[in-house]
Nucleic acid binder design. Structure first.
Lengths: 162, 162
DNA sequence: CTTGATACAGTAATAATTCCTAAGTCGGAT
DNA sequence: ATCCGACTTAGGAATTATTACTGTATCAAG
């Protein structure tokens, strides 16, 4: 775990950022989760361990890490930021009902690369990054919807949990 | 132009929505632009023609049309809604500098379909929609950046000046 | 034309994010 | 090991985008 610490520290250092306990903790949380937490969630999760961690600090840190290309912002439910420490490009599956965001990697990546290359080749844009989201219903919500098809669309509920 | 009116009217009718002047105007604006206006922009553009058009009405109308699947919400700059009347799935190119959002259609679509099918086949998710965004710099901003490379992101030299 | 339902405008409220500033902390130089 | 300057943090206030509420106006079916 000493060794583990060094991972985050090295990331911060090579990003030209100071290594503070808050930043190490935030970075470790992001590196260690498959979920895509919002700033609010990060704050909630860490404020027990780091009493008095300011939500503002979370925002600033996430922004700094995003600018340093350590984290990426994902366009989940659109008026809530979601963060992702997975550096290489990948797809996101966003559940319309519970707000869950899954990564989708592996066999799909070559297809995504093809797409990216095709766009680069055919437009005058300088591409830097991507965020491909597929919206729908996660396995769990899908099932619950099939049992009680009360409403077909237009649900705006947000996440009950991560 | 009479004929044109009927297009929007028919869309509203078949969506089960009342045809009001405000809605017709909003819908016409969206159908007639390649840009991806925000609610604020829609309001600004129309409030000269429709004195007193309420921003609130714009929001309500856009939401209603989105629910009826006439419009789609695009994850542009992430804390601002952007709307798009292009019904079939397509890519979006989002400029990091000026916020411009372009559609990218045509030859790329088969690749996008492949991707979508691959995801459907390999996950238990029920996909409904997608919003694939590629972030970068539009031709114009790209040029201005090459002339004055004030900030070079992507290198660990970032001056945390803010 | 009447009438019931729905949309509108305006105001207030909410939620997420950013700004501001004093106090605190990091880390290179002494 | 200590100090100092620069960067960070915390906390609250301010800002921005969006939604809720409410009385009035308007639509469209009969």
């Amino acid at each position: 775990m000493e060794r583990q610490e060094h991972v985050e520290l090295g990331i911060l250092r090579s990003a030209g950022l100071r290594a503070t306990p808050q930043r190490l903790a935030i970075l470790r949380l992001l590196l260690g989760t498959q979920a895509h937490p919002s700033p609010e969630t990060v704050h909630r999760e860490l404020s027990s361990a780091y009493l008095g961690l300011s939500l503002n600090t979370v925002y600033q840190t996430l922004r700094a890490l995003e600018k340093a290309r350590v984290l990426r912002r994902v366009g989940g439910e659109q008026n809530l930021y979601r963060y992702d420490a997975n550096a290489h490009p990948h797809l996101h599956l966003v559940c319309r009902q519970c707000g869950r965001v899954d990564d989708c990697n592996g066999e799909m990546m070559p297809l995504l690369d093809d797409l990216s290359r095709a766009v680069s080749a055919r437009t005058a844009w300088e591409l830097r990054d991507q965020d491909s989201c597929f919206y729908g219903y996660c396995p769990h919500c899908r099932e619950s919807r099939e049992l009680s098809p009360k409403d077909k669309e237009g649900h705006h509920e947000s996440q009950p949990g991560q």
